[in-house]
Amino acid sequence: MVTSLAPAPPRRPAGSPRGRLPRSTRPSLAPLWLLSPAGLVLLCVTIAPIVFLVYISFTDYDQRTLFTGEYSVVGVDQYAAILSDSEFWLSLLRTVVFTATLVGGSVLIGAGMSHLMTRLPTVMRYVVTVVLILAWAMPNVASSLIWKWLFQPQYGVVNWLVTQTGVVGDITSVNWAADPQLAWVCIWLLVVWQAVPFIALTLYAAETQVPLERKEAARLDGASEFSVYRVVVLPALKPTMLLVTMLSIIWDFNVFNQIWLVSAGGPDRATSTLGVFTYTTAFSGNVQIGAGSAIAVASTAILLVLSVLYIRNLVRSGEEL
């Protein structure tokens, strides 16, 4: 972490619409003492572990090491093994696809819901808000376990309800977690169920700031509800939309509990995302910590490359601020 100080720049960046930084030109020690507590803690609990993680990814650290401390440096062997393992690439692909479908699904439903809320009578809107908060507040370990119970073969109520509809025949004994596709569906529903409330409530709060008159005017002009949303609401919601999308990407990318508790990455690793793959490699069975570290480092590196453009943009906007 860099804490060296430089005098504040003599002029404000040209792109900035408003001044964001103090004009004072005298060097200040303030950033140093403001940053150092967090910096020290991050140094200990984040940076040092990351450095160590990179180091062990070049060793054969395994169960024996754990028990006896013996290990040897094996160079890039772990990486060679990981990168030639189709399971690694599959996990990466799964993670990306899963994150994309989750973010897409929850933002769509959330946006739809928030817009719907603006058109509801007060009482109904209040009910929706309470329901949303209820789903949002459920700790995800609890909701994962509820899911397992809802989708339980034989006694699960979802199986029973779906069977009652008569559309797909008798599925009371279907084991969702044991079927690759159904396991994904089940986990997707769970994560989306919990992700929608935050998105809906945040977007709703933002949408109430959009002047009602503009929407009404568009409606009077005969615009369909969808075009009202696209033309009038969406542009105003853009910053909020970007924020919830970004938060969703971060959160959905890191979904672990729900997968772990519902399917444990199974059946036959069909739901094993990078997080699950890293954990099972490093801590299950034979405890291949070196290999697990290599997976973590390699996948982070790949994702960094994939998102380099996005980061460049962020950095650039950071510069303007």
Partner: peptide, 18 residues
């Protein structure tokens, strides 16, 4: 920002050992 991209279980490994 980069730290956000680490899979949640990645930090777990070195933290456990340290």
């Amino acid at each position: 920002l980069i730290v956000q991209m680490l899979p949640g279980t990645a930090l777990l490994i070195p933290q456990f050992l340290i």
